[in-house]
Design a protein around this nucleic acid. Structure first.
Lengths: 253, 253
DNA sequence: AGTAATGTTGCATACACTGCACATGCATGT
DNA sequence: ACATGCATGTGCAGTGTATGCAACATTACT
């Protein structure tokens, strides 16, 4: 019998396989740790892990702990390589980073998902929530809003259909109306901000990136902890940010 | 009943799940394409893919094709972030690349596996076989041999236990004795080469990277298509290569 | 229109997977 | 030395899960 979840059929073995990989990503784990975590028998987990290990998806360390293996990394990298935005943009981003000193994020719109595809860390290497591959919440991030601002209403809806409008901070936009209003501003002005709307100590300035036809591909942002650089500080680099986005656009066919 | 493969128990569902991901990594594929490829019913694949999609491991494109999804990339990136060698080395590698113009590979030894963990492409951006996450064949690559040269015989055996001594080219080393002899040379001289031993049109110079205690962590190589730069050309940069490795070592705690 | 692929759903059956019990390994401590 | 605890590894039997089938829906191709 099939488990229905949100209307789609979900295979139990595959689902737990995924959960296990996710668990191992946090750090090396032992067999019984993993079994306890998911409340299944150790032998079950053992055989799944052996299957993963055989395929190179997990790696067995000397102390018996398991961690993510090279095959998984390789596949992911292959998928990243297939996107040409990061390849084209990386050098430009590093140049911008060198000039400003802050952290640069590059996000790409693929189907109805926005994901980080590159990140160049600033001198203040404080760990932020972002990571290459992480999906971006469109309505409460700089890059997300920059992308939304360029989309026709229909596609906007598609990106926002899963939105939960959680108020992560006091600044988070929690209604579609308020969002649309701000997107209008971003659209006319050509750039947007995130003033502590997801993590209250982080702010950024973001601009959309289009290809040479003018259709939206992604966005980039200059991001900093507020203590390091306020929005006003970041705004000083606005010309450089826009120039970077334009350089990338020009190379995007 | 359990399928035994090379002495370990392998779960069928999980194994095919992995094969499917590997298949999708090559490029977006449709449902029935995938079903045909593995000779299973379309409905079976559909439900597996739905499970993957639910988890973000695969992404459904507008045309009904499936490709690798953000969650998978994110997990892999998380695993890469946990290794500090690439983080420490990346800037140094870029500097070396800028100075030489050729491609730089960075490989790390983790347990009994050597894998590429960073790559900075040269101006001659010809596609090589290597990719971040790919495992390195120890005995027929520059970085592999550089690492082997620093290992005690016992660990050397562990890395070579799966070696098949295939002669990829006329230059490939195909016996343990010949390998050991060359490793001896690399060890005393401090650097090694790959003179078309894996792909006959590619050559490189490689040096090991140790941490400040002197224990081996990985290796880096300066690589080029022979048409672009011969071994003699690459040797001109030997001092820079060694300096880069030393700079990285110093920062490796 | 008609045909042929592809995607999607319900259902029954077989067998893959789980859990159990037990064996084995390897550190403890006494 | 032996016991104790905690870990991983393995044979076996029952059952619940994944599979293929068939029927339908939907799109592509003549």
């Amino acid at each position: 019998m099939w488990v229905q979840y949100k209307g789609v059929y979900v295979s139990q073995a595959v689902q737990r396989a995924i959960e296990i990989l996710d668990f191992l990503a946090e750090g090396p784990r032992s067999l019984s740790e993993t079994a306890r975590r998911f409340d299944v028998h150790r032998s079950t987990v053992l055989r799944q892990l052996q299957t993963f290990e055989e395929a190179g998806f997990v790696l067995r360390r000397g102390n018996g702990h398991y961690s993510i293996g090279p095959k998984m990394i390789s596949i992911a990298q292959q998928a990243l390589d297939a996107l040409d935005l990061p390849a084209v943009a990386h050098d430009e981003l590093r140049r911008l980073q060198a000039k400003t000193g802050n952290t640069i994020h590059l996000a790409q719109l693929v189907e109805s998902t926005v994901m980080y595809v590159d990140k160049v860390e600033g001198r203040d290497s404080v760990r932020m929530y972002s990571r290459v591959g992480k999906t971006v919440l469109p309505h409460c991030t700089g890059v997300g809003k920059a992308i939304l601002s360029q989309l026709p209403v229909g596609r906007r809806d598609a990106l926002l259909v899963d939105a939960e409008w959680t108020a992560f901070t006091a600044q988070t936009i929690v209604s579609r109306a308020a969002l649309d209003e701000q997107l209008e501003l971003i659209n006319t002005r050509g750039w947007g901000v995130d003033d502590g709307e997801f993590e209250d100590f982080v702010n950024c300035i973001a601009v959309p990136i289009t290809n040479s036809n003018g259709s939206i591909i992604g966005a980039l942002s200059l991001t900093a902890i507020k203590v390091v650089a306020t929005l006003d500080d970041l705004k000083l680099h606005l010309d450089d940010i826009r120039a970077t986005a334009q350089n990338i656009s020009r190379q995007l066919g």
